[in-house]
Design a protein around this nucleic acid. Structure first.
Lengths: 138, 138
DNA sequence: TGCCTAAATTCGTTTATCCGGATATATGCA
DNA sequence: TGCATATATCCGGATAAACGAATTTAGGCA
């Protein structure tokens, strides 16, 4: 039963929940996308992605310098799929989760019009001020 | 989203999972039942029950010296109900979870034929030897 | 080759969690 | 009242998580 507890432990961290939430809505994201959208340090993003990968919830694909992460095929197994669906259902009713999706879309469209990644900059903190964000073009 | 993570954290401990599993199969159990069946110290049983209660998953009813615990009415809310059902489903396929139910039934029938509780004895450890158990009558 | 950069890992620190033993609280009974 | 008992809570101590900064690893390109 330890491994069942282990599963819940993976979901017991807010940062990991946010990453999974993003990956439920965008098939692939690289580490710097996650850093940018969730405003977390590179070390934190990579660490949690590693945890999710070791748990079999996420897979990665290397392309040049970038690592693209996506939900693992294993999450199609019935029980995991149900868990993920339940999580999605719960987060759908949350404004903070919705805000994350806004951030995600802002980030992706900024990226689409040529914004570079820069993993070294903007490492200030988790919550510098909530409106720093993308501010692309406009 | 923190509180969602908090929910998973409650389920991320094997001892709490076991307690919930027992309460899925027996409507009410007192602390000493849980100590006896799961072979844990009184402090540990009470602590985890407190955690489950604070999370709203469990309720308690005092009767004289005893505290009887049961799943809280709140677990009938759709999302929690679904989570609990998923947990039950996962544990149903596990031999270790099944073994716990055997222990539970052994304990309850021993109790039914008059076995006293004794919270102070049998505090040796989590796993002294897996066959200590009830050994009623036979 | 040497530099730039994305991502992973290591390091030392801080914080959270879990534990058993001891103690406190409260009920039942003589 | 005083003692026995069931449970809750407190108290260090041990272990595990999580963190940011720094470093390492490795691909792309001049």
């Amino acid at each position: 039963m330890r491994d069942v507890a282990e599963f819940y432990k993976v979901f017991s961290d807010e940062a990991r929940l946010k990453i999974v939430w993003l990956l439920c809505h965008q098939s692939e994201l690289c580490v710097c996308d996650i850093m940018g959208v969730l405003k977390m340090t590179q070390s934190k993003a990579s660490r949690h992605l590693g945890t999710l990968k070791r748990a079999g919830l996420v897979r990665d694909r290397k392309e040049g310098l970038w690592s693209y992460y996506a939900l693992a095929p294993g999450v199609e197994a019935p029980w995991l799929r149900a868990q993920l669906e339940l999580l999605r259902q719960k987060l759908c009713e949350r404004t903070d989760a919705a805000a994350l999706l806004m951030q995600l879309h802002g980030w992706l469209s900024a990226k689409a019009r040529g914004m570079p990644c820069r993993t070294d900059a903007n490492q200030t903190s988790d919550k510098p001020n909530s409106t720093t964000s993308v501010s692309h073009g406009a």
